[in-house]
């Protein structure tokens, strides 16, 4: 990117990045909402990664969960419903020096943003996407979501949901995401581990975190919470590069398995685009911007 010269920022003061520095506005979530634990875990992940504070970008779409960026003291943005992935993909592609994290809900990611999810996965853009899945539309107050189970009674399905829900892990594995994991907001250490591995992955990495909406779908994830008599079953003896096996694991009945379903190395769009630039530059023998455009006009004489 010689045409967009990077002026390095003044040297970081050197102080390690702490939860204190990362804390911004107090979250506006309902007391007991699962999203608090996701936020706390994210601070811990950033403390471990120790990226320079100014190089972190926290993005989101619209929803309760998508309020996330206001609560993290980094650069970031609160975009429109369902389209934070294409926005964030551009941030990642335009700026390889930044670390891009995207947060959102099940409606944001699988319904209105479903097409973008598939295409960001296909393109394998280098960023980390955390879906806080509560099986319901929280912000708009209890409508059926694309992950609501059949029979779930909502304001739009008072007699119970009838449409088959999306299986997030299967959708992601199919679409070409190169890191696909599942966690649970009550399992803090597991959540931290999954998010950290996702962040360190080169490519499009996704973690679905079951995060309870205490207001509109209480107890939704008790089945996977040992403290509520459920079972938190980890993936074991699985080769995460085996796509077919990942698909099968993702088809386990409720509450399913937790851990990394799929992890693979595939060239990122970031690297592929950089390759195109390098090739073009080779052909034009490093000509400057002015020279290049002058040459184009000369051809039109």
């Amino acid at each position: 990117m010689s045409s967009a010269t990077l002026t390095p920022p003044p040297a970081a003061p050197g102080a390690p990045l702490t939860k204190k520095a990362l804390t911004a506005d107090h979250p506006t979530w309902c007391p007991g909402c699962g999203d608090f634990a996701v936020l706390a875990s994210f601070y811990r992940v950033l403390e471990r990664l120790q990226y320079p504070q100014e190089s972190i970008v926290t993005m989101a779409g619209i929803g309760c969960s998508s309020r996330f960026p206001y609560f993290v003291n980094t650069h970031g943005g609160h975009f429109i419903h369902g389209r934070s992935l294409p926005f964030s993909a551009a941030v990642s592609l335009g700026r390889d020096d930044l670390h891009v994290f995207v947060f959102g809900g099940d409606g944001d990611g699988f319904s209105i943003g479903g097409n973008h999810l598939v295409h960001t996965a296909r393109k394998n853009v280098n960023l980390t996407y955390v879906i806080m899945d509560n099986f319901v539309y929280g912000l708009t107050k209890k409508q059926t979501s694309p992950t609501s189970p059949i029979g779930f009674k909502s304001k739009t399905d008072p007699t119970g949901a009838i449409d088959q829900p999306i299986n997030p892990m299967r959708t992601l594995v199919n679409s070409g995401a190169t890191f696909v994991a599942r966690s649970h907001a009550t399992q803090v250490n597991h959540m931290i581990e999954m998010m950290e591995r996702a962040a360190r992955h080169d490519g499009f990495s996704v973690v679905e975190i079951l995060s309870e909406c205490v207001e509109f779908y209480e107890g939704a994830f008790d089945g996977a919470n040992p403290r509520k008599g459920g079972q938190f079953k980890l993936i074991e003896n699985h080769d995460p590069s085996d796509q077919v096996a990942a698909y099968k694991l993702a088809s386990e009945p409720w509450p399913g398995l937790f851990g990394v379903f799929y992890e693979a190395t595939r060239p990122t769009k970031n690297a592929l685009e950089a390759g195109l630039i390098a090739k073009a530059r080779e052909r034009t023998k490093g000509a400057g911007d002015l020279e290049l455009l002058q040459a184009s006009f000369r051809k039109a004489r």
């Binding site: 967009a4 294409p86 941030v91 097409n115 034009t284």
Partner: peptide, 26 residues
């Protein structure tokens, strides 16, 4: 690409403007 830049063909127009806004924000 000759100028070190990127133009992305997106999945639809909603993504296209979202990308463009993301590049600008960046």
């Amino acid at each position: 690409s000759k100028y070190g830049g990127i133009f992305v063909q997106t999945e639809d127009e909603l993504a296209a403007i979202s990308y463009a806004l993301g590049f600008s924000y960046a």
